[in-house]
Design a binder for these strands. Structure first.
Lengths: 271, 271
DNA sequence: AAGTGGTCTAGACCACGTT
DNA sequence: ACGTGGTCTAGACCACTTT
């Protein structure tokens, strides 16, 4: 792979990616002083995220080897490695020595409990049973629209479900998804699916959740939640508001959960 | 880099560190197959943590330059760099280009809000006022002892305080600390101190908190907390149980907080 | 100008898994 | 035996800060 050298990276990019504002050669040359300077490995990283976003490599699949990518982008293996290092640290990729580097997927025990923080006070986490109560299309409220970065009134999918552990109803989730992306999501599809919701999003809609922000509050159960969770009204519940993001940090889900924290807790680690 | 080769790392270690079980040369030579193999940079990392733990470099101070450490440990700069990279990722060290690498300290805005996750629903976080209600020595309960990895009945410092934001009491914290480490901690010392508690622990007791695990639950306020927070009994509160760790992952604090989440929330990020 | 961390390269070798 | 990621090295140069 010996191009005419200038813009080596750019020319190596698949045609669909279009032109880069700042070709890699520029960073290599060492220009740009007070400006937007971004090192080569970050440009490589951005290209890799683009490929993930485009679905060039699917969740669970291996991406090309470091050497392959290095020759493709006309950089050293070390530079590719540093790009992949960051993506692995962010859990977008998963390295397995001797085997390759794989696209992270929610169809794995490891990754599952990154997003389900409710754990039993004693014993090990048990898989939850999900019961979908409703799933329909509505016009988004201003609040949901803002969080999803769509226009107020645009169509969203609204889901309500109950999660149970060992037969005991523990979580009520209300979920909102952008309607145009999740076309064809129905109660039946949800009901027929085994495994985590984010796994379904991956395989059925090509949406990989990568990061989420949560806001937690303590509230008391009103009649509605009390009935759903079979508890007394006034029982304290942990309210969890979540906005989940896919590859380009694009918000793709809003979720409001109400957790019954009796015998369970929300675990967190401060680093 | 031509020493007499064997045990280059070990001989470079300050005398106080004593002998290493596995000298660096072993990793370099490439022995140890199914065994406990640990790469060179992790051994360097462990040595750096030892130095931090011994207080060779105090919070806020610069550690020696990468080149300096590389010659001291008889490894390449890249190996030292990788060790420091991990410590920086874990927030034990802080890199500042052109200036040096510094020991992380809680006397900084950046690091403060890593451990205080309560944020206002609108606006930017305001500094909290702390009012210490009590501070005394008691025998540890079995529960606290287990968390602090001390014997039941051993002396612990017990602190109760209230945090207020803009004059409104919002948090009640109960804190337990191992008595032998926090000798001389009194209500007066706590009262005379400005700034975060973990800053005081650093400067007065040489204890740097590095990581914490939390368990969150929703509870309702009893008469005690209701009085302290000037709210109605039965108001929902966010209960936060925290175990904080210092260098070497040694537990050094148990804390049970009760947060009033009206106008405030506990923010979290799932990566 | 000098010193620090940050990037990039090229090559050697090791550990792990598959063929 | 081969291909993958993982480690380690040595050297060049860049970006940032201070002298």
């Amino acid at each position: 792979m010996n191009s005419t050298d200038d813009n080596a990276l750019q020319s190596a990019v698949p045609a669909t990616a279009g032109g880069l504002a700042v070709p890699a050669a520029q960073a290599r040359a060492g220009r740009m002083h007070g400006a937007a300077f971004s090192p080569l490995y970050r440009q490589i990283k951005a290209l890799l995220v683009q490929s993930l976003d485009r679905g060039d490599w699917k969740p669970g699949e291996a991406i090309p080897s470091e050497m392959e990518l290095a020759t493709r982008f006309q950089v050293s293996q070390g530079t590719v490695r540093k790009a992949i290092d960051e993506l692995a640290a962010e859990h977008l990729l998963l390295r397995r020595q001797g085997k390759g580097t794989f696209v992270a997927t929610h169809h794995e025990a490891r990754v599952r409990y990154r997003f389900l923080r409710l754990a039993p006070d004693q014993g090990v986490p048990q898989p939850a049973q999900s019961q979908v109560l409703s799933c329909g299309r509505i016009r988004s409220s201003a609040e949901i629209a803002r969080a999803l970065e769509i226009r107020t009134g645009e169509q969203v999918v609204a889901i309500r479900r109950v999660l149970s552990f060992a037969g005991k109803a523990t979580v009520v989730d209300d979920i909102w998804l952008p309607g145009d992306v999740f076309r064809g999501l129905t109660t039946e599809l949800l009901g027929s699916y085994r495994g985590p919701l984010y796994g379904l999003f991956e395989t059925e809609f090509g949406v990989s959740m990568v990061r989420a922000d949560e806001k937690l509050r303590a509230v008391t159960a009103g009649d509605e939640y009390a009935t759903l969770l079979q508890i007394e009204p006034g029982t304290p519940l942990l309210q969890v508001e979540r906005v989940s993001h896919t590859y380009g940090d694009r918000p793709m889900e809003v979720r409001r959960g109400h957790y019954l924290t009796e015998g369970y807790h929300y675990r967190n680690s401060l680093n």
